[in-house]
Design a binder for these strands. Structure first.
Lengths: 132, 132
DNA sequence: AACTGGTATGTTATCTTATTACATAAGTTG
DNA sequence: CAACTTATGTAATAAGATAACATACCAGTT
């Protein structure tokens, strides 16, 4: 756990649940996994997620309504991130692409659009599952 | 209405509702707008949307859980599409970007990933709302 | 016309995801 | 301590999506 952000108990529990998971988790799945730690209501999860998203320690996968811990060692220090999501096994690969970032920035510049967050998600089948 | 796909009554109603709208509509908003046309249940909307998405006549905005009619005159004939979504006024600009498409294709090629659908959504504030 | 297979529909119930509202507690700063 | 902000707990409800089942409609064939 980096010391970049002091996490509260709930935030730490949610982050750990995501960090341990092999694939993205929905808020309700997180809730189920934290029952033993005293979690009873969705809001406890959503509130923690909100902060973690703020800190850049967790990403939201819009096309799945699910969440993943950031793959980067020092979170929050990256530009545009893209996700490749395998629909077979659920695994997610995270990568940053400066060229895409530049294209987005070009378009928004040309059109006077002020971007706040950009989502890039590639759904498909990963190499592993293709060979299986 | 193009003759590229014979739409059923329900599909035509849903498509028209989206085409008339100034901004993306949720499935339940579509349902409400079609009450007078006999729609009573969400499934009627979702089933129509499924087909329209198939035909490429409608796009789903993952970060909004909402739908828009395709902006292109002849739908379904385009590659990767990106959306710029204004969080103030709700307006959506649709554009295709071959460079981003190429970057995605490069990554998937390098990683043996077989893509089925790619989502690119830029959230932010449009020029109009910035000047307002 | 009757038979058959495929597609579209209608309806109810249910499941999943997310937020509102309100009360309480805990930490921080003046 | 008082005032303030931030975190928590809990219940209720809103919003988005699907499952299950029954019925109808529309070819093409016999």
């Amino acid at each position: 756990m980096t010391a970049r952000h002091e996490l509260t108990r709930n935030q730490a529990l949610v982050f750990d649940a995501l960090a341990k998971a092999e694939s993205p988790l929905s808020a309700y799945t997180i809730l189920d996994r934290l029952r033993d730690d005293g979690f009873r209501a969705p809001l406890q999860v959503y509130r923690a997620l909100e902060k973690l998203l703020d800190y850049g320690m967790v990403h939201r996968l819009e096309s799945l309504n699910a969440f993943v811990a950031c793959a980067h060692p020092h979170c929050g220090e990256h530009g545009l991130i893209a996700f490749a999501i395998c629909e077979k096994c659920g695994q997610v690969s995270e990568f940053s692409d400066t060229v895409i970032e530049q294209q987005v920035s070009d378009w928004t510049g040309r059109n006077g659009f002020k971007p706040s967050k950009t989502t890039v998600e590639i759904r498909g089948t990963c190499a592993n599952c293709l060979n299986g």
